[in-house]
Design a protein around this nucleic acid. Structure first.
Lengths: 132, 132
DNA sequence: AGGTTATATCGGAAAATATCGAAATATGAA
DNA sequence: TTCATATTTCGATATTTTCCGATATAACCT
């Protein structure tokens, strides 16, 4: 199989996963740190980290380290492939994505250390409850 | 998870697979019957059939039955989602896809019954040899 | 009807992926 | 240094996907 085809397939695989797609769409309005993403989407922080690894491998997101925090953002529009732009446009119209972004605004209103410590302490039970 | 998001993920999954993506791209220039696809791509007929089932489920291709043959085509451009159009545009520039299409032209130059009977008789060994 | 042919579905083993808590790593603060 | 904290990686299991030969189905032809 040619590399070109393989690369395209890998990029498509990276986003054919609910969490990864939500994370990517969540980042479009602007960067977030890992714990903000985990808190916004109410998923374990390790799952977010793994999702981000795949998105990075696919070339969809960039990371910026600031102290202990890792801020993640979608690659600049100028470098974004048509595939990525199309995806973001499509995803950006989904109600669930909009709801995620709204939640992110609330999370961003809280100081990061507070969000992070909350995420670290959260258990499966906590997440189940807060999803009601 | 919302239905919208689920649907998008399912569509992306449908094409994040080398064979399915190749089949979809192969069909863009015009319809082909199942055995023509199998012969062009040198894969078992059952694999093509399964790939087509997924592409149909995703709403990317249509089928037209003519006697014993099933002709498959990409949905008309007018009904095609931006996602599908973007994919076809991207895939259509890949060398491997162009090579597949060139091979399809050769296959189309042969009468369908001859192609079909050849596909039905083909064994793994045959396919391995002809891929040299 | 019986035979042939094109396609679809099945079976089931191997490979890949998902999930998430626990442990490891890395950075900063005291 | 030692402690605390944010993130990554690991481990282990569960689930899904892939693959293809074999079989079933459907349609045509005598």
């Amino acid at each position: 199989m040619s590399d070109d085809l393989r690369t395209l397939v890998e990029q498509l695989k990276a986003v054919s996963h609910p969490l990864r797609l939500r994370v990517l769409a969540l980042l479009e309005p602007g960067e977030l740190c890992v714990c903000q993403i985990a808190e916004t989407l109410q998923v374990p922080q390790s799952s977010v980290s793994e999702a981000l690894r795949e998105l990075r491998r696919a070339g969809f997101v960039l990371e910026r380290k600031e102290g202990r925090w890792v801020f993640v953002s979608v690659v600049p529009r100028k470098q974004a492939s048509p595939l990525l732009k199309g995806l973001l446009a499509h995803a950006g119209s989904l109600p669930e994505v909009l709801a995620d972004r709204a939640r992110a605004l609330e999370v961003k209103a809280v100081a990061i250390p507070i969000v992070c410590s909350k995420v670290q302490k959260s258990s499966p039970v906590d997440r189940a409850v807060s999803r009601v």
